Simulated assay, not measured.
Amino acid sequence: MHRREFLSTAANPDARHDYLVELHGEPAPGTRLTLRYVPDRAVATPDGVAAYLGALSGTAGNSGPEALALAVLDDLNNELIPRWVEVTVERTLPVPQRVVVEDRQPSWDNPHLFIRLRRI
Rank of each mutant, 00 (worst) to 15 (best):
S63K: 11
V38P: 01
A51D: 14
E66L: 04
V101Y: 02
Q97G: 13
D109F: 13
H2G: 14
R104S: 00
V99M: 11
M1K: 12
L23W: 04
L35R: 00
L117D: 00
H17D: 12
D109K: 10
E66W: 05
A42F: 06
P46H: 06
L35N: 02
E22I: 12
P46S: 10
T31F: 05
R32E: 14
D103G: 03
P29Y: 12
A44S: 06
A42P: 02
A15N: 13
A60L: 11
H24D: 13
A15S: 15
G61M: 01
N12G: 07
D40C: 12
L7A: 06
G25Y: 02
V38M: 03
A55C: 04
T34L: 04
H2W: 14
R116E: 10
A69C: 11
A28N: 12
D47I: 06
D74Q: 12
V21E: 06
P94H: 01
L76V: 06
P65Y: 08
G30S: 08
V49E: 07
R91Q: 15
D109S: 12
N62S: 15
P27A: 02
V85N: 04
N77V: 05
Y19M: 15
V21I: 13
L7R: 02
V21T: 11
L76Q: 02
R119L: 01
L7M: 08
A69Y: 09
H2D: 14
D18N: 09
P13T: 09
G25F: 02
E5A: 07
A55N: 02
R119Q: 03
D103S: 01
E5W: 05
L117V: 00
P46M: 08
N110M: 00
G64R: 09
E5M: 06
A28I: 09
A51W: 11
A15M: 12
R118W: 02
T9P: 04
E66V: 03
E102K: 09
V100H: 12
